[in-house]
Design a protein around this nucleic acid. Sequence first.
DNA 1: GTAGTTGCAAATCATTTGCAGTAAT
DNA 2: ATTACTGCAAATGATTTGCAACTAC
Lengths: 143, 143
Amino acid sequence: MASVQDQFRAYLAKHNLKVTRQRQIILDAFLSSPSHLSAEELYIRLRKKHPNIGYATVYRTMKILAESGIAAERHFGDRQTRYEPNTGEDHHYHLICEECGNIVEFEDLQIDFLLQKAASAHDYTLSHRRLEIYGRCPKCQNK
Amino acid sequence: MASVQDQFRAYLAKHNLKVTRQRQIILDAFLSSPSHLSAEELYIRLRKKHPNIGYATVYRTMKILAESGIAAERHFGDRQTRYEPNTGEDHHYHLICEECGNIVEFEDLQIDFLLQKAASAHDYTLSHRRLEIYGRCPKCQNK
DNA sequence: GTAGTTGCAAATCATTTGCAGTAAT
DNA sequence: ATTACTGCAAATGATTTGCAACTAC
């Protein structure tokens, strides 16, 4: 039942933060944009409709979205932090085309299992994992 | 036979680059330091013995080491780029303690196989992969 | 001698922060 | 009324670059 909107409001309330017009706009833009955008890319999309929203506000809000568990931060090869909607406890992996940058997400229970096993083998507890496979997508393989 | 030193000289020769004192010093320092140092950390170690080597030279040289295949660049959670000796075509994975930052490297043929399979399943070719498991090391588990 | 290199300082890129004015509670 | 928030511009931290002096070839 709890929509992302509710989750957001609940998080703000719990932390004495305010529901502002800008935060609402940024959340909506984030939810209705392609995944893996950076704060800058989101900002650029935003200013089309809302030219007066500040760069810093986008950064600050994305940080709140990450803390509230609505967005997850990702670091791929480039320097920027990218965000994706958080799909809860379950995790997925990324397949990234080195040529065009296209990203495919996938899940794999067998990999999950082996990662858990690898951590245990070294007496580590596992909290999260990052797996990225770089290669060439079908399109880019034929130039 | 080909030592890393030879590999370095060969790369420099092929690209019309010169074998300078500084490049030699930085390569040696890189080879005799713990793995996963950042350019800054290497620079700090260096200046003990060679106070007149410039910050930029370290960055420039690490870039050459990466291009020549002697070092591999790594991006973990923090913002800095870290370097590790490149162990050729074979790859390994990382187990990282979120508390103390300790890093364990490991290999796993079963994981290799599944990653290759995952790429194929989406018609991607595979060029390289990045796998990091975050958790807590044995020491940090007991506070 | 010539072309590539160095060290420095200034520039750049992504991100963060201080602050005075503004808006949500 | 308070307290948090915004937008801007200036600050930060990692890395890069321009340039005049220098060094390997």
